[in-house]
């Protein structure tokens, strides 16, 4: 489930990146981060498949639930990293403008 959720996140992030009008949202980082994680979990999944065989595709409900929670947490963490980086680099100058307005 973690692999599936991360892969969906990577695909969605890539589609949004492709449709972007400019690079100010720095979506490339999000894409690379999710694709990197998805590829790493793919290797993990393959090793597990070679070890367990067909049993790999019939996980227990508890395992699936735990993996789903983990997948969603991973997606959230990726989004947090991206948004924090966006605010710090501030490519559109929005944070700077907001801070300047507060000064006045």
């Amino acid at each position: 489930m973690t692999l599936l959720i991360t892969t969906y996140a990577a695909v969605i992030a890539t589609v949004i990146w492709y449709r972007r009008k400019d690079d100010s949202m720095k979506l490339g980082i999000l894409c690379f981060m999710y694709w990197g994680a998805a590829l790493m979990w793919l290797v993990d999944a393959l090793f597990e498949y070679f070890e367990l065989g067909a049993e790999y595709f019939t996980p227990s409900a508890q395992d699936m639930l735990n993996d789903s929670f983990l997948g969603l947490a991973v997606v959230a963490l990726g989004l947090i990293v991206w948004v924090v980086r966006l605010l710090i680099t501030d490519p559109k100058g929005s944070v700077r403008r907001a801070l300047k307005n507060q000064e006045q």
């Binding site: 973690t2 991360t6 490339g28 980082i29 690379f32 981060m33 999710y34 694709w35 990197g36 994680a37 998805a38 590829l39 790493m40 979990w41 983990l70 947490a73 991973v74 963490l77 990726g78 990293v81």
Partner: peptide, 20 residues
């Protein structure tokens, strides 16, 4: 830079899984 982002990003999220 692309390779770096995939490696650091993926490893960071994978490390989180290990913490989990």
């Amino acid at each position: 830079k692309w390779l770096n982002r995939m490696l650091w990003g993926g490893a960071f999220l994978l490390a989180f899984e290990h913490v989990w």
